[in-house]
Design a protein around this nucleic acid. Structure first.
Lengths: 136, 136
DNA sequence: AGTGTCACGTTATTTTGTTACACGATTGCG
DNA sequence: CGCAATCGTGTAACAAAATAACGTGACACT
């Protein structure tokens, strides 16, 4: 097993449960929503969720949406560049679309470099109305 | 007076106080930090701060930093494109640099358009180490 | 046995943000 | 004028999001 790429099998029980909840969901979930969903599985405190989430984010299996205070399962786990991903968030239906645009990533890095800024992580979250909702 | 561009004179008392606190500060402030700073001016409840902040953001005088749950005074108030601004946030000193890059703005819009996504607002927050802190 | 590490569990607390309700000032209008 | 509508304000209570502090058990390694 590769030491960097984590799959479901590497996960601890709590991490698997949280990952499962996020995978089942078609949209982002808040930590407390996850907690509620996992009560029957023995979850009792927010910290249990947050600890699992921290690890899952670290593994690149989950993304945090800063503008929503919520989390989503990564659509392309295993891809390297988890520091430069963009999201399109529909304000009508709540659906989140994960985009991996190389040009954008490069541009952000260039912007940072030009300013002498050592970029660690970039948060790009686009808010608007998705095509499906616009049509409806 | 232009009906879209707001200046300090348009602001209500509370809005002015909050704007003043943000302008005085050299970095981002949380709503509750602002509240504490304005206790002597009669502020008592978070809602007073949030209401003022909402308006100031609406006016384009203040930006909200989603990844920090904090707020900063806009460096170039009066500029149109308050929906596509990027921030570089130094994780060492906490300084925030506001960037208005036209190429980036266009690219984000193109990304959205290509996906049939009606972009309303984009959040771009780059985390890393600023040049000053890297040198030190 | 001793040590370090890691995930886990529990309680309490802090930080952040919102809901609900009421009051006063202003504006617009019949 | 009188009256509704709007807007900013004030207060209290509350909900949501995140963390602090402390302790336990499992496991590996020496």
């Amino acid at each position: 097993m590769n030491e960097h790429v984590h799959t479901t099998q590497d996960l601890t029980k709590n991490q698997s449960l949280v990952m499962g909840a996020l995978s089942r969901s078609d949209g982002p979930l808040s930590a407390y929503t996850i907690l509620d969903q996992l009560r029957d599985d023995g979850f009792r405190a927010p910290l249990q969720v947050y600890r699992a989430l921290d690890k899952l984010v670290e593994f690149g299996l989950v993304h945090r949406l800063e503008s929503l205070n919520a989390f989503v399962a990564c659509r392309h786990p295993g891809c390297d560049d988890h520091e430069t991903v963009a999201f399109m968030i529909c304000e009508t239906c709540g659906q989140v679309n994960e985009i991996s645009d190389n040009t954008l990533a490069k541009q952000l890095k260039r912007l940072a470099t030009d300013a002498g800024f050592a970029l660690k992580k970039s948060t790009v979250e686009l808010r608007g109305i998705c095509s499906a909702c616009a049509a409806a």
